[in-house]
Design a protein around this nucleic acid. Structure first.
Lengths: 185, 185, 185, 185
DNA sequence: CATGAATGAGTTTTCATTCAT
DNA sequence: TATGAATGAAAACTCATTCAT
């Protein structure tokens, strides 16, 4: 059993359930079935742990969305592919999305975490900007497109997780279609 | 100087900056310029404070959106009116939106808070359902429409607050227009 | 309504129920139906209050036992008279006995309280010593006789108060008789 | 060094000096030479500590009085044996007697503590009742005999502890003799 | 290397006392 | 003069971190 892995899993569960300050090191150690002291062999302190977790999942999310993305997809297919990958990621790792988007306060994220986050964001802004310049999507700031699509996706995902909305293929397809309608020219 | 008011203002600032567990009673008392003990004259404990704050702003938001809403507005005008009111509320009370939507864990909200929240949500679901039955918006579950629109709005608002996107009348108008395009038939 | 009196009554009830540290000034004020600040018009602080209360009841008890005590009573009649008066006092003021004997820590009693207590005790020691010298009671140190009788009385009284023993005239007479048997020659 | 033991010893000293509410957790930790947090590794809270202490000493006292008590002792010898054991216990553990008899408010004792106490008391009531039925001691309710003897013993013990009376073998023998005279037929 | 008991600074909460009304 | 809201020091209790085993 990989102890570091177990700690990261436990931390993800607890941070996404109770937030950073609401989850204690003792809780994380218990859930990971390791001694509290063991956490400090792998992470300098609790802040270091939350930042490692954040970076791990930001990277995994970026990887999931962008790895082997065919370069020459037509716009609608590209959008579909991205939405689909994002949905898959959320379905496979609901806690990770939860943690990244809802339960992470800037106040304890360090420079590296913020830089990573920004770099990831910039790649999407570039994509949206190109679609805009190619007259595929509406002529609004890419930051707006990005914020709106991301927000909508997360809003729907939150509804899925809260069981306010059944996670069916139809619902996922509808959400995608609505968002495409929103941004396409 | 109204002390209860000052405590609520300080708590809103600190909870939305640092989350519930990250904001200490001492910080709140300092910010409100009252003694720590004074907080306990107005609120039974820290949980009671966060619930009072949540309910206060949920109610204020509901009021802002729904008070004196003309009954016979054509759908697009209705959507505009609601979006505009929501935007106005967010502009006037950015921390309140922040707190309500991003920094409030279910784990410390009590029954009353949840009931209030649900009641508010139900009124919007009913509105979206009527628009759907009138063939004004797309035939998708009102829960989906609601989650998507709310998520998109909050995503854009978060971008405004993080200064990733300039809060201009154009940007606000664009966001509204995109969302309408998303849901309209 | 005499405020000072009301405060002393409330303090007696609460100190004898919960002890000095367990009874708060706010509780006492509430019970006495006065403002918390009012207590400080009559007593310098909480310590002063408990000492005033102690001295009040010590004096009242001494008075009850010794006032107009016929000087020439035969020993058995004297013992009966004292026992009877003590029993009467306990019946009329169970909380006072409780407070004086069971719920009063030396740690907050001041010099005056202790002096009063000692003076009272000395008068009884003198009485027991005289009975001893007159060969009426056994030839043991008067301190022993006093401690034993007082302890026995309080033990029985505690049983009455705890309802472990019914407070009947017979029980009271028995207790007296047993104690007399203990000390008489 | 056994920390739990040290905490119990310190708590006994402080509770019997200052009462439950008068002894703070910090005082107890200091006296026990442990960190304040350590107390909470062994006891759930301050109430749990005082109850553990109460039960420990009630059990020890019961053990001391009743262990290996010869079954066929003649009444006067039985009384002597019990009195002697009680006196020995008090001499060895004066603070324990102090705490059990004088400084323990029902208000913070839990069900288990009260049950233990009652069970112990019942065994003595049964003994006194048998002596009564055998016409050895006076025909008064065993509750009265028990309360009176216990009270007398504790009164004398208090005098010993307060140095109002020298703890000599003679004094102890006198006390025992007087009490026997009180109850014997 | 892994542990979890121990710690004390930090947290929530209480309360004796003050003071503006 | 009487009040009770306000206070902050002190109480009970928690928890990130260390370190002996």
């Amino acid at each position: 059993m990989d102890r570091k892995e177990a700690i990261l899993v436990a931390a993800l569960e607890l941070f996404s359930e109770r937030g950073f300050h609401g989850a204690t090191v003792a809780m994380i150690a218990d859930r990971a079935k390791v001694g509290a002291g063991t956490i400090y062999r792998y992470f300098a302190d609790k802040d270091d742990l939350v930042n490692a977790l954040f970076q791990h999942w930001k990277r995994t999310l970026a990887e999931s969305l962008l790895a082997d993305l065919p370069a020459d997809l037509p716009p609608r297919r590209l959008f579909h592919e991205l939405w689909h990958r994002f949905a898959e990621f959320s379905r496979d790792n609901p806690l990770a999305l939860n943690f990244l988007e809802f339960h992470c306060h800037a106040s304890y994220l360090n420079e590296a975490s913020r830089a990573l986050s920004d770099g990831f964001r910039d790649r999407f802004l570039a994509m949206f900007d190109e679609l805009r310049r190619n007259l595929v999507i509406k002529d609004v700031p890419p930051q707006l497109t990005f914020a709106l699509i991301t927000g909508a996706f997360c809003g729907v995902e939150k509804a899925f997780q809260a069981d306010e909305l059944a996670r069916t293929p139809e619902a996922e397809a509808h959400a995608e279609e609505l968002c495409w309608e929103a941004i396409r020219r």
